[in-house]
Design a protein around this nucleic acid. Structure first.
Lengths: 236, 236
DNA sequence: CGCCCTCTTGATTTCGATCAATGCGCGTGG
DNA sequence: CCACGCGCATTGATCGAAATCAAGAGGGCG
């Protein structure tokens, strides 16, 4: 019955990998999983550490990051609710996972999670599909990092964030000017885009000055002219 | 018997995904696969096209690349013999696959390949593991593209290529100074590292001038001082 | 031989990094 | 309640690494 207690009211019940399992199958996972709360800034997985856990993200936003020996950081991925976290089949983690907001995870011991994958082919296939999607996304970001200008990076990033905000639970005022909150600080945006905080700030100011976006204050952004933003993200 | 004919003398028989299959199971794949030769410069998969095929690379080197609307290119991956090519479970290809050298593929229709994956769980698991490894590599490259200097990029790239050359079938003269041929032109190296051809050329010249590497001519490179190269790739 | 392709080298420009100062919102503690 | 401090953001001045523009050199092949 514990199964029902934990999974039945799970906020991401049919968005996460687990959605591929029947109620009956869920019991196996349920016995393994435990909930974990993270505070903003807290790190769950450190690059280089033994790869102990896998998890589903229930709420909040996490960053996946890599660093050079002398401390420069690059965010290589962002995780949102229902995303899968962790690296099955590896003995050490290559990347650090840190909470950008307060967050909740459903955590499984890695080895046991691997066993569940083996026993539930449908779930393994779903994970394979997600992993391919993540790979495509990472490669798309490689193009961004290697070949796009600061302005293109910022414009593209804002469009991405707007799309995510529109589809999920951020405040979006119908059509026309859409306003939403970025879940990232300027510094974190810089770490996603391979820029510095000053360049991010300047480009945002420039977009605001040309009337393409508005910056009502705090983390909020208003899209005033989506077409213009798209043009700046991807010059013909 | 066709199975035996094609797969038995396959040059990557137990390095590729197929290595997970028994001789008996191989027959299924064998019935689907056909060999294809590619000439240097030829493209097998175009970004945006319908995703028709999957393949194993038998010989040669392929690039996986993305482009901006106005023609800037970023190479997002390189494929070597025994690597898996293609994007199962997607209806369109996101990236372009092009031969950097003459090459040979063992090609399967995508849909039918997906069916084989479903029927052979061991192979699917192996593909999942490879996909995770590819994802880790892509993310590592994101750090390189976003945060490393031209010198660090070149030094790291040469070390990677030397390691690959050392393990496989390029000419390597024992220990000490190792010499090998790059399978890429300067322009292609630039497209991997997110640089221009001139910057690649200058950095190579600089490394040669400081005695860290030698450039005997053509595509050849000699590592004269690996430790120094490592220091330049990853400054403490 | 001459052409094409790749690579190298030089001069100059430019974009983004770096250095530096200030502003602003917010929570905490006096 | 206000003052202070702290983290985050903006803005300005300057610097520098890599891009761009431009010219030529080597090398292989028809």
């Amino acid at each position: 019955m514990a199964a029902i207690e934990i999974c039945a009211d799970c906020s991401v019940r049919d968005l996460a990998l687990c959605g591929s399992l029947t109620d009956h199958e869920l019991e196996a996972l349920n016995a393994l999983g435990r909930h974990q709360r993270l505070s903003k800034g807290e790190t769950v997985i450190w690059a280089g550490d033994e790869s102990i856990i896998c998890a589903n993200l229930l709420s909040g936003v996490l960053k996946l990051s890599a660093s050079t020996a002398d401390g420069r950081e690059q965010i290589v991925g962002l995780h949102y609710p229902a995303d899968f976290i962790g690296r099955p089949y590896a003995d050490a983690a290559d990347f650090t996972v840190t909470a950008l907001t307060d967050a909740q995870l459903c955590v499984f011991p890695r080895k046991q999670f691997e066993q569940v994958l083996e026993d539930h082919v449908r779930m393994e296939r779903l994970l394979l599909q997600r992993t391919f999607a993540a790979l495509d996304e990472a490669r798309g970001r490689m193009l961004m990092l290697g070949r796009k200008s600061a302005e293109e990076k910022i414009a593209g990033f804002l469009l991405d964030m707007a799309d995510r905000a529109g589809s999920s639970a951020c405040r979006a005022t119908a059509e026309g000017p859409i306003t939403f909150d970025l879940p990232l600080t300027r510094g974190q945006i810089a770490d996603v885009l391979g820029l510095t905080i000053e360049t991010v700030s300047r480009q945002m100011t420039k977009l605001k000055a040309s009337g393409v976006i508005g910056l009502p204050g705090g983390r909020a952004v208003t899209l005033r002219d989506r077409a213009a933003l798209e043009e700046r993200a991807e010059p013909a």
